[in-house]
């Protein structure tokens, strides 16, 4: 009877797994490899014949394409700024609101709410806030032209990202804090440890896993940013806030350079793969250390 059951399980394996796998294969993996091929050609998206140009696209983007270099610098700077600010604020939220009181639950809901608003709408909403609402409030905001200078435009995007994601990482920190054994705090209390000492010596070391997770989540979100920048600054002023994703999009779909765009996409993939590898290494080292 047992072998009979095993046979039945295996027989229907294909029936249950093949269809979604085929969809995945055709629309995710196949384009991934075709993209690698395009990156070695000069295809313009329309013409029937495409010429093999070797690594020329890769040389060109780093040697002659200033906009691409600017977008790499912007994307890395933005990712670092976003990771630090979102996580610091998210951690502060978690410290303030992790206990379960009614007041805290209401505040947690308010802080998470912005997270459900998607990039494109978010950008337009904040365009209004920066362009009309803040100047109307006056005070220190009165005369800042947020989208006029590279510096303020950069921080405008960071501010919106923090507004959107700090509540999200707060939830991750809270989940991690609440999994700490209550007895540790009781013991520390008896030993006379201040609540500050309890935080630095018990809470912080025990939520290190949550740090890794949250930092890499924000890292991925900000490194791949498209919609928010697209609608908030449009990459301006003078392309100084153009993220890598926007640069690739423009190269292929606005300027029609599919070959060069694909080559940039390959470079983008390599960046992301390195970041993912770092994440795995960090997570493993943590597990060894514990």
């Amino acid at each position: 009877m047992a072998t009979n059951i095993r046979e039945r399980i295996i027989n229907s394996f294909a029936l249950y797994t093949l269809f979604p796998y085929a969809v995945f294969l055709v629309f995710v993996l196949l384009p991934f490899f075709i993209g690698g091929y395009y990156s070695l050609t000069d295809w313009n998206g329309i013409s029937r014949n495409l010429d093999f140009v070797g690594l020329r696209n890769f040389i060109e983007m780093f040697r002659d394409d200033e906009g691409f270099i600017v977008s790499i610098v912007f994307t890395f700077k933005f990712t670092v700024a976003a990771c630090i600010t979102v996580n610091l604020l998210g951690l502060a939220y978690a410290v303030l609101f992790h206990t379960t009181t009614r007041w805290n639950s209401v505040l947690r809901v308010i802080l998470v709410l912005p997270n459900v608003i998607g990039g494109i709408i978010l950008g337009f909403v904040w365009r209004f806030i920066f362009a009309q609402a803040l100047p109307a409030i006056g005070g220190i905001f009165e005369n800042i032209s947020w989208f006029g200078q590279p510096n303020t435009a950069f921080w405008a995007i960071v501010i919106v990202l923090v507004w959107q994601q700090a509540g999200y990482v707060m939830l991750i920190y809270i989940a991690s804090m609440n999994s700490i054994d209550e007895q540790l705090f009781e013991a520390a209390e008896i030993d006379g440890a201040s609540s500050f000492r309890q935080f630095t010596d018990i809470t912080l070391p025990l939520i290190v896993p949550a740090f890794t997770v949250s930092i890499f989540i924000v890292l991925a979100n900000s490194f791949k940013i498209f919609g928010l920048v697209f609608s908030l600054t449009g990459g301006g002023p003078f392309g100084t806030t153009e993220s890598l994703a926007i640069n690739i999009y423009n190269e292929a779909f606005i300027y029609g350079n599919y070959g060069l765009g694909s080559a940039k996409a390959v470079v983008f993939f390599i960046f992301v793969a390195i970041l993912s590898y770092m994440q795995v290494r960090f997570t493993q080292r943590r597990e060894v250390a514990l």
Binding site: P31, F32, G35, I248, A265, V266, F268, F269
Partner: peptide, 26 residues
């Protein structure tokens, strides 16, 4: 089964932006 699952997991690394150009063609 292991192979299928492994490709699903590995593919999670691929950012959408790096396949979008050929995807439109496909």
């Amino acid at each position: 089964s292991t192979f299928m699952y492994a490709t699903y997991i590995l593919a999670m690394i691929i950012p959408f932006q790096s396949i979008m150009i050929p995807l439109v063609v496909v």
